[in-house]
Amino acid sequence: MTGLLAAGATVVATLLVPTTAAGAAPITVAQAIGQQNGSSATVRGYVVGQPTAATTVVRSNFPSDYALALADTPDQTNSSQMIYVQITSSFRSAWGLRTNPGLLGARIDVTGPLTAYFSHPGLTSPTAFASAGTAPTTTSTTATLPPTSTTGAPGGDYDPTYYRDAIGKSGSSLKTVLHQIIRTNTKLSYDQVWNALKVTDEDPGNAANVVLLYSGRSQSKSTNGGNADDWNREHVWAKSHGDFGTATGPGTDLHHLRPEDVSVNANRGNKDFDLGGSVAAEAPGNYTDGDSWEPRNAVKGDVARMLFYMAVRYEGGDGFANLELNNNVGNGTAPYMGRQSVLLQWHAQDPPDAFEKRRNQVIYDAYQHNRNPFIDHPEWAPSIWN
């Protein structure tokens, strides 16, 4: 640990100081695993990787700055002996593994509530991070931190301005404020969506193609249309759920419109989202039955966050129905989409990746000039719907 931190900068760490566990002795990871009751504690452990699913922890090529795993020994590889730590926005530049891969193997203290994360023993909504040995205190202190980067997740630059009124809020109050922030946006026509999707969903490995949401296929931008094997405009929040059709507004909102194969789009239809079913034709990794659709693992979180956005953006104004999540499937034409509990699981297991963040940024910069807050701040979804 000493070697890892020696190269870091010495900074004033006022924001990283615990305020809820002042004077509390750190507990071990094993103790934290056995104490998942929502109480606040300072956990001391070694950074052993980044969790990407309930039983999966990666130790290289870290996909984001949103989570890390701690263990009582630096060489631990058994996920059952780890605690998963959520990294909220204010800590990501200093403690996220994508930005700071040199943290792997470091011994640190993290303070926060002991609650499940990724359906696994965890610590969420942390109030402090510190190198091990930094005593908790309620006053400013100087600590040696790992090198930081000025490059954060898209949206980080907007926290003081774009999301200013939402910072510090939770639950229904947070939902209300986010609605006010994102409801002011430029609206596209349904025809304009065609060209927009060619930009928002461009294949990063082939600029002539788009990536189809469910099937994952990279396909020529020019093959959009209504014929077999063309791609068309998939409404992730099915347009019959609230009966908004293709009207300018929810029917043309890029934050939930994605390119998809015509046949796969028809197969998904207006089904809600849930686990299970039979393998979907032409869409490996997707499953479906009479009233639900399960997308492939790589976009489960994307789907959840698009639906979270819709449930906040469309609250009954602008002449459209009040869209809401519920825990049902088979919602038909009612303005509801489910299954909420499953969507929250998908959101946790599949954090925003580079493709999704870029897409959010392009929509903001070039088209609608509003953002999906659950890509910028994943911690806000459980705050609202849990």
Rank of each mutant, 00 (worst) to 15 (best):
A32N: 10
D243P: 01
T200P: 00
Y66D: 03
A311T: 05
V199I: 14
V342F: 06
N227W: 11
A24R: 09
L16M: 15
V236M: 11
A130M: 15
S119M: 08
D157T: 12
D165K: 12
N100M: 02
G45I: 02
Q35C: 02
T52N: 03
S172L: 11
I83F: 01
N326I: 10
T127M: 12
L114S: 03
N185W: 05
S40Y: 12
L97N: 00
A311I: 04
L344A: 08
K175Q: 12
G152I: 07
D291A: 11
T28I: 03
R258H: 12
A24Q: 11
A94D: 09
A13H: 10
H241R: 15
G301Q: 08
N206T: 15
G122Q: 06
A32V: 01
N265W: 04
G245F: 06
D72E: 10
I181M: 13
I167E: 06
D75N: 14
S222G: 03
N327P: 07
G156V: 12
G96P: 00
F273M: 13
T186G: 08
V58H: 02
R217D: 11
V12A: 13
L104T: 09
F308V: 05
D203M: 06
G105A: 09
T138K: 07
T73S: 13
A143P: 00
N78A: 15
T184A: 14
N370F: 08
N270S: 15
W293C: 09
K357R: 15
N360G: 07
P160C: 06
V342S: 11
T248A: 11
T88L: 02
A208D: 13
P18M: 02
L174E: 01
H255Y: 04
G245T: 13
H120E: 06
A30W: 08
E282L: 15
I33W: 07
G122L: 04
T28C: 02
Q81E: 15
T144N: 11
Q36V: 09
G242R: 07
V303D: 00
W237P: 00
R313W: 01
M1G: 09
W346Q: 06
T248M: 11
E234A: 10
Q192Y: 00
S40E: 12
L213M: 12
A6V: 14
V299M: 10
A9F: 07
H241I: 03
K300L: 02
L325G: 01
K221G: 00
I181Y: 10
T141H: 07
G285P: 04
E379F: 09
T124V: 15
G276D: 04
Y336P: 01
V312T: 15
T141V: 14
A22K: 14
P113M: 06
R217S: 14
L123P: 01
A321V: 05
P378M: 03
G155T: 08
V236K: 11
A69W: 02
L68F: 05
P382F: 07
